[in-house]
Structure formats: structure tokens, C-alpha cells
Simulated scan of single mutants.
Amino acid sequence: MAFFRKWGNTWQFRISYVDPITNISKEKSKGGFKTKKEAQLAAHKREKELQNGFEQTGISLKTFLQEWLHEHKKDTIRRNTHDIHESNIRNHINPFFKNIALKDSTPLLYQRFLNSLHAAQYSKKTIEIVHGTMYNALNKAITLRKLKTNPC
């Protein structure tokens, strides 16, 4: 259920819900809307996302990639493939994206990453392999409902 209030010249909404995994009550709020109607629309959209199980967290891309590699890939791929993914993350992805949040990854930023690999004169095949690592990881983020779309 959403609650609305006027805060100065803008409107704010607050949503209360129970996290289905931890069974803990949580609240989400956002402000800065010019009208109450805008706040209501945004609250409705957010409630729908929460009902569908989608909740963006503040997890960093770096942390998510490590979790993806060790929790979702470790026993499902060959050792050599695991080593390639690990090397791509350590040598290419983490140095470029540093501590960016997973939810802040965008197609434009990802394209800049690919361009930086090209500018560093990596071969087309190497860039494709690094892209494969990133694409597969962020597809898993969609499956886990941490992202809506894959920026790759």
C-alpha cells in the first residue's frame, strides 16, 4: 500500500511491503514529483515491480560478477571456461567498471567498455569472449530480477 505526502513543493510516496525471501517488512520511498498524480503513477509502477519480485539492490557489478561466477557457474562449466571467465572479470571488466552499481550499468557505458578494448588493440575474438562473459552474467541478473534489461 502506498502513502503520499507533500514535502515542500514536491510530492513523495512511501510503499510498505514484506520481502518474500527474508519475511522482513521493508519500505521504499521516493520524492521529487511535481504533482500527486505523478507520485501515484510512480508508486503504482514500483508496487507492480515488487509484486513481480523485481527489486534493484545497491550491489556493485564487481560483487555480482563474483557471485555469478562462484555460485552459478562454478560446477556447471568446465574448469578452463571458469578460468577464462575469471580472467575476463579480473583483467578487463573490473578495471574498467571499478565500483559501479549493477543497476547503473547502461548500454552506452558498456559500448564505451567495448570501445576501450578495441582501442587497446585486443583482437576481435578476445573482445567477443569478454563480451560473452559479461552478457551471460547480466542475463543471469535478469533471471534473478536484479536488472530489467541486459545493457549488453
Rank of each mutant, 00 (worst) to 15 (best):
L50K: 00
L50M: 13
L50E: 04
N52C: 11
N52Q: 14
N52F: 14
N52L: 15
G53K: 08
T57W: 01
T57F: 06
T57L: 10
G58V: 12
G58I: 12
I59K: 02
S60V: 00
L61Y: 00
F64T: 04
L65M: 06
L65H: 00
L65P: 02
Q66I: 08
E67K: 08
W68Q: 01
L69W: 03
L69E: 03
L69I: 03
H70D: 09
H72F: 15
H72W: 11
K73V: 12
K73H: 07
K73N: 13
K73C: 11
I77L: 05
R78P: 02
R79W: 04
H82A: 12
D83I: 04
D83F: 05
D83M: 02
H85T: 08
H85C: 06
H85S: 08
E86L: 04
N88K: 05
I89S: 02
N91V: 04
P95S: 09
F97M: 04
F97H: 09
N99G: 03
N99M: 11
I100C: 06
A101E: 12
A101W: 02
L102C: 11
K103T: 10
K103R: 08
K103I: 05
K103H: 01
D104M: 05
D104Y: 06
D104W: 12
S105L: 12
T106W: 03
T106F: 01
P107H: 07
P107K: 05
L108F: 05
L109Q: 14
